[in-house]
Amino acid sequence: MTTTPLAARGPRAWWRVPQRQVPVLATLALLLVMYGIGVSQYRAFSNIQVVFNLFIDNGFLLVVAVGMTFVILTGGIDLSVGSVVAMTAMVSASLLNDGVHPALVLLIALLIGPTLGFAMGCVIHFFDIQPFIVTLAGMFFARGMCTWINTASIPITDGFWTSAAQERIRIGENFVTVSVLVALAVVAVAAYTLAYTRLGRNVYAIGGNQQSALLMGLPVGRTKIAVYTISGLCSAIGGILLSFYTLSGAPLIAIGMELDTIAAVVIGGTLLTGGSGYVFGTLLGVLVLGVIQTLITFDGSLSSWWTKIVIGGLLFAFILLQRLVGIRKK
């Protein structure tokens, strides 16, 4: 046999985009179009600081969405993130208020989220329960803890916190905050983990076909527990960034944030069924949400509810796009 009839397929043309990258490119195109609209409509929009503000205002959302990307890539979901963000901010504010050293506060705050995530991951894996319901329980638990700590908002006056919040890192004539650097570092580490480590590749394998992953001898249970722990860690980091941003802990803050992050991840091109998606897409998804918000702020006459309406429409469009790409594949 000189040729294999089964493999009659030439090398890929350079201009042909791999199918799994189509959704991410669609998001990128959308982002550019929306930014273009902003620049053409409002003179101040072209200021580079507008772009930096996108990162400043959405840094914590970005970090949380990165954690959510891991979970959704395995085909799971984590509804507890918003509550964990609020709980982390609450705990930090409360401890700082009691005069605990900020370094210790930082450590404790960074441990709470992953611990809860680890616990939820264990329940999901060992008892084989739907992630939806386990993390729903986690969401109620963490939210309850917030009000148990204090029913009212606690202001933060600690020196480290205020300087972290107000430090402006200059880039030319513009500036970013510490939060932005932290968020970008999280994105970079996450992207590396997903692309170049066994843990990351196992995440994709489980999302593709959990049964197969098991039969191929991959550590399915360990990986699933790991992604919920990672999501918990990202929520904890997000919570600290949020407390930098607001300089307070409030029991009712970040309600519904889990839904914003899911929207960002999906608009960023990650399949809700798992197995396909990129952290870079999630970054774009968060920016899309941010640009919508900015556009509506610039307009000034539109109610902020328009943000939700536009996000709703976009989500719908992107889920349809995923479906169409999926169908064409078959």
């Binding site: 590749r201 394998a205 191929m216």
Partner: peptide, 15 residues
């Protein structure tokens, strides 16, 4: 029993 979303190479070597 392989993962359709991963590349051929990765399906052979994953793990």
């Amino acid at each position: 029993n392989l993962c359709p979303n991963l590349s051929v190479a990765e399906n052979i070597f994953i793990g």
